[in-house]
């Protein structure tokens, strides 16, 4: 569990965990998109996706009022009471206590980004203090960013040590480690960073693609690389790590395709919100829109379920 990679070249790390071929991954995930999900399977997939949403607002203009309405949306996504609540709301640390007021005691968790989100460019002590503060305010889950600068400089031990320090600061809160895949660029790097994180986090913690604050966020490709890393780690150690793609997943169709990737890579045990989440905001309304379409058979107008997360 506490194995640490020494400071070493990426090549040395890859020789241990194996490389990834980009074109091969891209072809693999293209096949998920050809799966055709109908009827009961579609309903199951849409409802399951709803329960996996970390309903997110991460704006400079966030207010307690905005967070309150987000929480209401998370608890009761639609008029239809049979629609389950989302997994969590995801907010900045300063909003944790406001969120906790609304969802505390329910199944909906409060997740908070921390560690100088999204850049992570603050002293470690500051980042750890932010984590402790969010947990103290009632955060059930902490979404941290890794030190990409250290990773790209080959300082793998530093990356791992920092993650380990955040694990400690989390206490009982679940940790989600954001790799910020767009800054790592290659699938090899994403696989390597996944392993660095998984080596020091706990069963039930997550690895997560992105902050949602860069140009490229979750894709089926980087999702697949991380799912395969989780699978390899699980089969080697028995430690089950969760996965959270974040940013860029806006449609129900996309979400179903991501879930197909989970079904065919990690299997049934990952098809629930203790092991798979979507970091998203506008996705939720599209899921609801499609559920309503399945229920009524009619395509929905935009004013029924806004396409803008702003209106939650």
């Amino acid at each position: 569990m506490s194995v640490r990679y020494p400071t070493s070249s990426l090549q040395a790390l890859l020789s241990q965990i194996g490389p990834v071929d980009q074109v091969g991954i891209d072809e693999r995930v293209a096949k998920y998109g050809t799966r055709s999900i109908k009827k009961a399977a579609k309903l199951w997939g849409l409802r399951t996706a709803v329960t996996m949403v970390d309903l997110t607002t991460l704006e400079g203009k966030d207010t307690p009022g905005k967070v309150a309405s987000l929480c209401q949306k998370a608890l009761r996504p639609a008029d239809d009471a049979s629609i389950p609540p989302t997994a969590a709301v995801c907010v900045y640390p300063s909003m944790v206590r406001h969120a906790k007021k609304h969802v505390g005691g329910t199944s909906v968790k409060v997740a908070s980004v921390a560690t100088a989100f999204p850049s992570g460019q603050a002293p470690l002590s500051t980042r750890l203090a932010e984590v402790r503060a969010a947990v103290a305010d009632g955060a059930d889950e902490i979404d941290m960013v890794i030190n990409r600068g250290a990773f790209l400089a080959g300082e793998f031990a530093e990356v791992q040590d920092e993650i380990a320090a955040v694990v400690e600061a989390c206490g009982r809160a679940t940790l989600k480690v954001i790799l910020e895949v767009s800054e790592l660029e290659s699938y090899d790097n994403i696989r390597a960073a996944s392993f660095l994180a998984m080596q020091v986090i706990r069963p039930g913690d997550f690895i997560k693609t992105s902050t949602g604050k860069t140009s490229l966020n979750a894709t089926l490709g980087n999702n697949q690389v991380m799912l395969e890393a989780i699978r390899d780690h699980y089969l080697a150690t028995g430690v089950a790590i969760g996965m959270k793609p974040a940013g860029g997943i806006r449609t129900a169709k996309q979400a179903l395709t991501f879930l197909i990737a989970v079904k065919e890579t990690l299997g049934d045990a990952w098809l629930n919100n203790t092991r798979y989440r979507f970091g998203a905001s506008s996705l939720l309304n599209d899921l609801l829109r499609q559920l309503e379409k399945e229920r009524t058979g009619a395509y929905q107008a935009p004013y029924s379920f806004s396409e803008s997360a702003e209106s939650y």
Partner: peptide, 18 residues
């Protein structure tokens, strides 16, 4: 005494005929 980790590819999410 832990069993070897295994993946479950069962029928939790069975696809309807398409």
């Amino acid at each position: 005494g832990r069993p070897a980790p295994e993946l479950i590819f069962g029928d939790l999410w069975e696809f309807d005929p398409a």
